[in-house]
Design a binder for these strands. Structure first.
Lengths: 215, 215
DNA sequence: AAATATAGTGAACATAAGTACACTTGTCAA
DNA sequence: TTGACAAGTGTACTTATGTTCACTATATTT
């Protein structure tokens, strides 16, 4: 079995993407079927199964509208510089964050960065941040690296997050034990930061990628 | 009634946003309820009704997971842009390299990757490679990372390069002392590779960037 | 004290939506 | 001409999910 899609599968993949853009949630089997005049949900399901098998989407079983997007379709040509009508995603690079301003306020934006949309598996707000310091070197995040951040307000234990502590933006591993939040660096020379209730602390997002430029 | 949200409503709105970021589709009433320990779906529903009334979300009635967003909490600075000529660069991702074939032969290309051209300061051929193994972890290059490679045939001491040794493509630090070439890993558990004259060895390029995707 | 808004419970219900199976059709290569 | 594969039908079934109702509780406002 190859990973190439049939025409029908391509059409359906496109429809799913479009539907999600328009509605904010993925279509049901029957909604897909209606669009393509496939009267049986089973016929549709088998298309989805094929798309899953070929790695284009993920489907949560028994969950309604449980389609999540794994990757866009790209032509595999070994072309170097391209001009096409593909849609790319441009995310802002956040520099110094002025105290009190929202992270994405214009004055905080230093530039922007174009990345492959397939890197951002799920939709949602993203921004990038240039890392200062070496507190995360054991996690492979070095001084000067860019981290790509998926905006969110909560985190799970062990996730690498970007947080605001007082005036400072920091990248650490999140840990919440019995409602005591700590930010764990990944460098023996640094100690965890304990967050007590009176700390000015908020989660900005979860690190979903790291980019390093050499030379 | 004002359009200001109660704390509870804010929490729920944030959760919905986060859930969608993570899963690609919105949560059900019960999934929201589970997170907030609200055992009755009705309790959750009334929160959604409030959010709708205040203009923060839209809910399609009788549709599962039918929550769509009207307003983000952040301004949407992460814009989707249409590529115009020559602005973005698309480079091929090289997968398994068939022995004897040129690195950029079609059969070696697994996909492609769009990156900001400002990342590639120098012009010239580039390709990307998915790293296998952990021989370079001390240089912050982990298993599964993509390295962006600038094609060239020669290297300077200390540069991180991609080379072909026999059939294998490898990422290492280049060292040439008195015409004895060694490839130095960055991991105490590995030993340098000595290249002797009869080795089948060639330099494919220099690593100019590293990209890591988390989750 | 009464009214009002927010927040939640627990159960019952209707329907939306995923899963499964047997059978059909058309195409294409061996 | 057999076989494999993509694509689709129709029905039946199970589960997931939204809707509704009566009732409770706790603040805050009038």
């Amino acid at each position: 079995m190859k990973n190439t899609l049939t025409d029908r599968q391509k059409d359906i993949l496109n429809f799913i993407e479009q539907f999600r853009n328009e509605n904010g949630y993925p279509p049901t089997l029957r909604e897909i079927g209606k669009r393509f005049e496939i009267s049986s949900t089973f016929g549709v399901k088998r298309h989805l199964d094929a798309l899953v098998k070929k790695g284009y989407i993920a489907v949560e079983s028994n969950a309604s509208r449980g389609i999540s997007y794994l990757r866009h379709e790209f032509d595999n040509t070994a072309v170097k510089v391209i001009a096409s009508e593909d849609i790319f995603t441009k995310i802002p690079i956040v520099g110094r964050v002025a105290a009190g301003t929202p992270i994405l306020a214009i004055e905080n934006i230093e530039g922007s960065l174009v990345i492959d949309p397939s890197f951002l598996k799920k939709s949602g707000e993203h921004f990038a941040l240039k890392v200062r310091g070496d507190s995360m070197i054991d996690a492979g995040i070095f001084d000067g690296d860019f981290v790509i951040v998926s905006s969110r307000k909560e985190a799970l234990n062990g996730e690498i997050i970007v947080a605001m502590v007082g005036d400072e933006v920091t990248v650490k591993i999140y840990e919440n034990k019995v409602n005591k939040v700590s930010l764990i660096p990944q460098n023996k020379n640094y100690s965890p930061i304990r967050i007590d209730s009176k700390s000015d602390f908020s989660i900005l997002g979860k690190v979903s990628g790291v980019i390093r430029l050499l030379n």
